[in-house]
Design a binder for these strands. Structure first.
Length: 103
DNA sequence: TCCATGACCGACT
DNA sequence: AAGTCGGCCATGG
């Protein structure tokens, strides 16, 4: 009932705006939403859940690298989905934001 | 109600 | 060039 959605919902809305085959960074997402910090972006996605409809896998850190720990199944899932969308990874599993960046 | 932590980023040393 | 520190909002005990 709040006319103004929380930052949480706004972040999800921005992430949902990211087209397929393209990625964005936590910092960029927070930059689109006023009053939000990169930390909240990560925390927001972390609390999403498995049945979320938000393309959280299109969000990576400023280094173009996936933030999730290596022992996290979600990380492998993210890479798998990005590859399916045509996103290419460098030798160290980093993404060229200049080429696949949303902006 | 208060304290501590979190999928980060930027600037400084 | 690499490592360290603080800051922001939200959630949980």
């Amino acid at each position: 009932m709040n006319k103004r959605p929380n930052v949480f919902d706004r972040l999800l809305a921005v992430v949902s705006e990211v087209p397929s085959g393209r990625v964005t960074t936590y910092g960029d997402v927070s930059a689109q939403v006023v009053g939000t910090t990169p930390r909240l972006v990560g925390f927001a996605l972390a609390g999403l859940g498995e049945d979320t409809k938000v393309p959280w896998h299109r969000v990576v850190n400023a280094a173009g690298r996936i933030s999730l720990p290596a022992d996290t199944p979600a990380r492998a899932e993210q890479v798998k989905r990005l590859r399916a969308e045509g996103v290419r990874f460098s030798a160290d599993e980093s993404i060229d934001l200049e080429a696949f960046g949303w902006f």
